[in-house]
Amino acid sequence: MNQQNTTQVLSPTRHFTVLLSPTPRGARLARLLAVEWMREHEVPYGVAEAATQVVAELAANAATHGRVAGRSFRLALVTHDSVLRIEVTDTRGENLPRLQPPFPPSDSGRGLLLVEALADRWGVEPGPVPRKTVWAELDLPHP
């Protein structure tokens, strides 16, 4: 009986997290910080471009729909096991996002459709009260 000894090499886990003001400026800063972090950690260009759009949408939603005066939102980026996970946590847990059909005359309401198109997976995790976390995952190419 011939057995092969194989070792699976997993990519190292990398974390980034920051608290930001729930304002348009905080949402813009989330996007800029994410771009820099992904550049530093050599996230492949195509994934980084999609992730930048996802961060922009989720941060804008947190600043617009998840805003509570005096309470920050949190951006977290994590890479592990060939996945980039983006999490945006705000303090409006009672206001869960959901996909809505786009209405042509509307200037808003398309953000989650974009997230769904760009991410491999996404979802919402309620709690702990009063928070909710909207997350999205993008698969990283295998080296």
Rank of each mutant, 00 (worst) to 15 (best):
N2M: 02
Q3T: 05
Q4R: 03
T6E: 00
L10P: 03
S11N: 07
F16N: 09
L20S: 03
S21Y: 03
R25G: 08
G26D: 02
A27L: 14
A30W: 11
L33Y: 07
V35M: 11
W37K: 09
R39L: 13
E40P: 04
E42D: 15
E42L: 06
A50Y: 08
A51S: 11
A56M: 10
E57A: 01
L58A: 00
N61D: 12
A63L: 12
A63R: 06
T64K: 15
G66N: 08
G66R: 01
G66C: 08
R67S: 15
G70I: 05
G70P: 01
R71S: 03
F73A: 03
R74Q: 14
A76E: 15
L77D: 10
H80F: 09
H80E: 15
D81I: 02
S82F: 09
V83N: 04
L84I: 05
L84R: 10
L84Y: 03
L84V: 06
I86S: 07
V88E: 04
T89M: 04
T91K: 04
R92F: 09
G93T: 08
G93C: 13
N95H: 14
R98M: 13
Q100Y: 05
P101Q: 08
F103S: 10
S108H: 11
S108C: 11
L113H: 02
V115L: 00
E116K: 10
E116G: 01
A117V: 02
L118H: 00
D120T: 09
D120Q: 04
R121G: 01
W122P: 00
E125N: 05
P126D: 00
R131Y: 12
R131E: 14
K132W: 08
W135S: 00
E137Y: 02
D139I: 10
D139E: 12
P141M: 00
